[in-house]
């Protein structure tokens, strides 16, 4: 990629920036994870904070009718909610507290495995370091500076907040007779042609023609017929459905 493009002046580093985090399993399978940055995490935390406030508020009002016993139970409850809310949800709910669930996030270990008790405890106990000296000051700075957006608790526990994989809707391909190309296509090229067919609804007609015209010469068709041709190739790649 950038290695065979002419680099002007002060040359760029080799790998282009990306938000992906690659893990290779012992079987040689690449797992791309997508670490989540400060903004969705802040919103998820805000949601969790609000939810905890709501739960505690309702329960405190109920407990207020129990006198001293209520105060005692209330403080136990406060302890549990403030220290165990995150841990229990993360460990028992596949790394998702309710806020993370809403934002489509998930906590995993650095190697992509589900988070366990010790890692979750460490990362949540160290929240109090991240909060120093006020309102997640250290945590925010660490999150904005770390290449994989880890706050201090994440660094200590070896965990990562990633986006959950969302279920995909089946894309609609435009109708065209299936075609086969006389030359082999690489994986990313096949994906691009399929993507071209799938995303035609979002693109303007002019842009679609412009994109297809790039490949008109190699496909040996006139630019006007290139879109149809590419759709046919995409059908051919997709196979009978």
């Amino acid at each position: 990629m950038p290695s065979h493009t002419a680099l002007p002046g002060n040359a760029m580093p080799t790998a282009p920036l990306d938000t992906r985090y690659q893990i290779e399993t012992p079987e040689g399978i690449d797992l791309p994870l997508r670490p989540a940055g400060l903004m969705p995490r802040a919103l998820a935390f805000g949601f969790d904070l609000g939810l905890r406030g709501l739960i505690l508020g309702i329960l405190f009002i109920a407990l207020a009718f129990l006198g001293n016993l209520g105060i005692g139970l209330g403080s136990i409850l406060l302890f549990f909610v403030s220290w165990w809310y995150m841990v229990l949800f993360e460990v028992l709910n596949q790394g998702c507290s309710p806020g993370k669930q809403v934002m489509g996030l998930r906590v995993v270990q650095d190697d992509g495995t589900p988070i366990g008790w010790s890692a979750s405890l460490i990362r949540n106990l160290l929240r109090f370091v991240d909060m120093l000296p006020f309102g997640y000051f250290l945590g925010a700075i660490s999150c904005l500076q770390h290449p994989h957006f880890k706050r201090l608790g994440d660094i200590a526990a070896g965990t990562l907040v990633v986006y959950r994989e969302q279920p995909l809707a089946r894309p609609q391909l435009p109708l065209a007779p299936a075609l086969r190309l006389p030359f082999a296509l690489e994986l990313n090229e096949q994906r691009a042609i399929l993507g071209f067919a799938e995303r035609q609804g979002e693109l303007s007609a002019e842009r679609t023609h412009e994109l297809a015209a790039i490949l008109a010469t190699p496909l040996q068709v006139s630019p006007a017929r290139a879109v149809e041709q590419l759709n046919g190739v995409a059908r051919g790649l997709l196979g009978p459905t």
Binding site: L185, N188, E189, R191, A192, G195, F196, R199, L203, R207, L211, I214, L215, T217, P218
Partner: peptide, 12 residues
């Protein structure tokens, strides 16, 4: 569709 344009140009 910048990403598609990029791949198409490389393919060509």
């Amino acid at each position: 569709a910048w990403d598609l344009e990029l791949v198409f140009r490389r393919l060509r």
